[in-house]
Amino acid sequence: MSLVILVGWAAALVGTVLGLPQMVRLARTRNVEGLSLPAWQIILGLNIGWTSHGIILGQLNLILPNILGLASTLPILFLMSRELGRPLPKVMLPGIILGIGMIATDLLFGTAVYGLVALWPALFANVGQTLELVRSPRVVGVSPFFLIAGVLNQALWLWWGTLVADAGTMITATTTLGITSVNLVWWLMRQAGLRSFLVPTRQEMRAFVRARTRDRTKV
């Protein structure tokens, strides 16, 4: 078995189980603190777009993980829509539209242009998760295993894309690997005690309310 096949299927395997830790954590805790809804909407679109890209290239190791990825992405969006109190069709629609747009780009302009276009949704998805890790008062809703798997997945896809000289995969994986690495490091820093930025903690809010109450009483 060649190195290309081994690396491709290793990336496919990690991609297949990528969302499972987050789905299990969300189903178990029903806690969405630290999770980004826009990020998971974009991941839905990426699952659809990369499934199509794999079909066009005739690469089963691209097709399989993204089809199976829907098995975790869809339940996560369902659970988030319920916990956030938002209609499920409105939660799903942005991802579906994104996926259709990615397919159209791939068919009309080819793999290099597709890679440049597909880079941006992947970038926004991971940056969206970064923002939640930065500003959320708590990040207990985020699975560390999902973050670790994300870094490993992108590293493997970058290796595979280099081996098969697929510009689309290399362009997207390189940038996404950088951001997923930042997300993992930031989560570790939050666990080590780093507080959120720009968002007051619950204790600070309580102290603020008590201070305002005392001021009003004095008046």
Rank of each mutant, 00 (worst) to 15 (best):
residue 102 M to R: 07
residue 102 M to S: 06
residue 103 I to L: 02
residue 104 A to I: 07
residue 104 A to C: 07
residue 106 D to M: 15
residue 111 T to M: 13
residue 112 A to Y: 14
residue 112 A to Q: 15
residue 118 A to L: 09
residue 121 P to R: 00
residue 121 P to I: 01
residue 125 A to F: 00
residue 125 A to N: 01
residue 125 A to Y: 02
residue 126 N to M: 10
residue 126 N to H: 05
residue 128 G to Q: 02
residue 128 G to L: 01
residue 129 Q to R: 06
residue 134 V to Q: 15
residue 134 V to F: 15
residue 139 V to D: 13
residue 139 V to L: 10
residue 140 V to A: 14
residue 141 G to Q: 00
residue 141 G to L: 00
residue 142 V to F: 00
residue 144 P to C: 04
residue 145 F to V: 14
residue 147 L to W: 00
residue 149 A to N: 05
residue 151 V to F: 03
residue 156 L to I: 01
residue 157 W to Q: 00
residue 159 W to S: 13
residue 160 W to C: 13
residue 164 V to L: 09
residue 164 V to C: 04
residue 165 A to G: 13
residue 166 D to C: 10
residue 167 A to G: 02
residue 167 A to I: 02
residue 167 A to Q: 12
residue 170 M to C: 12
residue 170 M to D: 03
residue 171 I to V: 10
residue 171 I to Y: 04
residue 172 T to I: 09
residue 176 T to K: 10
residue 177 L to P: 00
residue 178 G to F: 05
residue 178 G to C: 09
residue 187 W to D: 07
residue 188 L to C: 11
residue 188 L to V: 08
residue 188 L to S: 09
residue 190 R to E: 04
residue 192 A to G: 13
residue 193 G to D: 05
residue 193 G to V: 09
residue 193 G to W: 07
residue 194 L to A: 12
residue 195 R to S: 08
residue 195 R to F: 11
residue 196 S to T: 06
residue 198 L to K: 15
residue 200 P to K: 04
residue 200 P to F: 02
residue 200 P to Q: 02
residue 201 T to G: 08
residue 201 T to S: 12
residue 203 Q to I: 15
residue 203 Q to K: 15
residue 203 Q to N: 15
residue 204 E to V: 06
residue 204 E to Y: 10
residue 206 R to N: 13
residue 207 A to M: 07
